[in-house]
Amino acid sequence: MVRTYFLLAWTWTRAAAAYPASFWLMTVFGVIIAALDVAVILVVFANTTSLAGFSRDEVLFLYGAASVSFTVCDMFVSNLDRVSQHIKAGTLDTFLIRPVSAWLQLATDRFNGTRVGRVLQAGAVLGYALAVLDLDWRRAWMIPVMVVTGMVIFTALWTLAGALQFALTDAPEVSSSFTYGSQQLSQYPFSIYGRDLVGGVTYVVPLAFINWQPGLYVLGRDDPFGTPEFMRFMGPAAALVLALLAALAWRQGIRHYRSTGS
């Protein structure tokens, strides 16, 4: 499956490589867009030294960790949220007559590498934060674990977003609340949010495991909401449950697909 993915992605990349100028331009602009979120964090911290109990560098750590997961998924699976476009254009039928899962084909459709710039930008922020924060290195093993957990969660969210568009074909924008909304949510320490909201994104949709819970462990801090210590390690389990649900939702979406009348 991974092999098929990369073969498909490579074919698209080769097709896009026919226009190198556009490729570099889009890569650079991608970095600039992603940098806007960092700019906002810096503007906020130009006015204060701590936000809801977290310093600038701690926030950059949380931002960087979530953003690495997010941008990798943005690069590799974000095309899943074009389901509605494909349904309306009647092009989804084509994916369904091929011997490879529609999910894989949609994810790679028109793949282009320009989003790699954002991954590098997120990686740079995370690297900076790790360099300046005085971390307990015995806890550093959690960092790769949390990044991978985050990728699984974001992939599941994009799959859910795509599945939702089978039902909400006329209102695809709703699904970006899940994907881009979750990214926005996970850029800041959850201590800024209301207790109910944090409860919801911990126990209902496990967004707290993208970076918040494991991040607290890495930073060596207690949860201001007082969740018990073992919650820091529940990320992989929560991500797997969400991935399973997303896969089921996707299957249901495909089974209820109605195609078009002509």
């Binding site: 936000l51 006329d170 695809p172 924008e173 609340s177 909304g181 926005q184 800024i192």
Partner: peptide, 16 residues
């Protein structure tokens, strides 16, 4: 749908 998304992001920004 746009209104819904704008509202969700509004809440997240408000907390910041």
């Amino acid at each position: 749908a746009g209104a819904f998304t704008n509202s969700v992001f509004g809440v997240l920004r408000a907390y910041i």
